[in-house]
């Protein structure tokens, strides 16, 4: 192995290994042939997703029950110091919840925004926690498999389509896909231009939105995992060669790996944020559909 003529010859093998490790496999059998296709298999992604879900649930329930207790205590004794966050973890979670609430009010509006905070908060915290778990070597993120992101995108899609239909009525929602300016035009323009815009908007709202929501999360995380894997493979391949050149390339790869790891932490946050804010924007366009 180590004395192969050209270290790059070892790379294709490593890449195959890497893609295999990133594919959906049964959680107890890493050496399963190819990705799982059966419907009722407990896969590594499902197990790690459940771990992320359990972590978020436990954190939120513990923190919120303490907050409720402290609020009752503050109301009873009049001592506002009881409302202060107990430690750093609690302050981070409070800041996160506040961030989501501000975003919902900002995007959806003062009146309708707060209603969607639980949904948006669940998306944000679940995706963020899961993405961070996906960066642990051996860990998996929900966003790393197409199935996971499609499930999340379908929930978001169901919510904004449901909101659109209940707020505007069945006909009203379809009508609102055509801008009000076009609806005021003469009949010929209304049929020609309106029909064309309706077609575009229909495809965009009902197919492109959920598709891009799912694909964006998957593609970003999958690409990130591949980059980290390739640089790890570089480090392993070149560090085996005890020559000055081999060690130098290995050291540069290692440095780059660490930088990319930090960047992937940033991507983990940004993708959770983008998914949440796009869901909020889509819900906003359904809530206020009749206004534009």
């Amino acid at each position: 192995m180590a004395n192969a003529a050209n270290p790059m010859e070892l790379l294709p093998e490593k890449i195959t290994e890497l893609v295999h490790e990133l594919s959906v496999l049964p959680y107890d059998n890493m050496h399963h042939e190819g990705p799982v296709t059966g419907p009722f298999v407990l896969t590594n992604y499902v197990v790690w997703g459940l771990i992320a879900l359990a972590t978020v649930m436990v954190l939120m329930i513990v923190v919120s029950s303490r907050e409720k207790k402290q609020m009752a205590l503050a109301a009873q004794s009049g001592d506002v110091r009881a409302l202060a966050p107990a430690n750093r973890l609690v302050s981070v979670i409070e800041a996160g919840v506040e961030f989501i609430r501000d975003m919902a009010v900002d995007v959806i509006g003062q009146k309708d925004g707060p209603k969607y905070v639980p949904l948006l908060g669940t998306f944000f915290f679940l995706i963020l926690t899961s993405n961070i778990f996906g960066l642990i070597p051996g860990g998996k993120s929900i966003g790393g498999a197409v199935g996971g992101t499609v499930a999340l995108a379908l929930i978001a899609w169901l919510v904004f389509v449901w909101v659109g239909f209940t707020k505007n009525g069945f006909i009203g929602y379809f009508k609102s896909l055509i801008p009000s300016g076009v609806r005021a035009m003469p009949l010929a323009a209304r049929i020609g231009l309106g029909g064309y815009i309706f077609l575009l908007e229909f495809v965009s709202t009902f197919f492109i939105r959920p598709l891009t929501l799912a694909v964006r999360l998957f593609a970003n995380l999958y690409a990130g995992h591949i980059i980290l894997g390739v640089f790890s493979a570089f480090v392993v391949i070149f560090m085996q060669r005890i020559t000055a050149g081999g060690l130098a390339v290995g050291a540069v790869s290692l440095l780059f790996l660490i930088i990319m790891y930090a960047f992937e932490l940033f991507v983990a946050f940004i993708q959770a944020y983008v998914f949440t804010i796009l869901t909020a924007v889509y819900i906003q366009s359904s809530v206020h559909a009749s206004e534009h």
Partner: peptide, 23 residues
């Protein structure tokens, strides 16, 4: 703050086309 939010939405919409190519 608001510009940043709008920028991320804009980036996300623009990015979608590249992602379709990736898929």
């Amino acid at each position: 703050g608001r510009l940043q939010t709008t920028m991320f939405i804009g980036v996300a919409f623009t990015e979608a086309l590249a992602l379709l190519g990736f898929v």
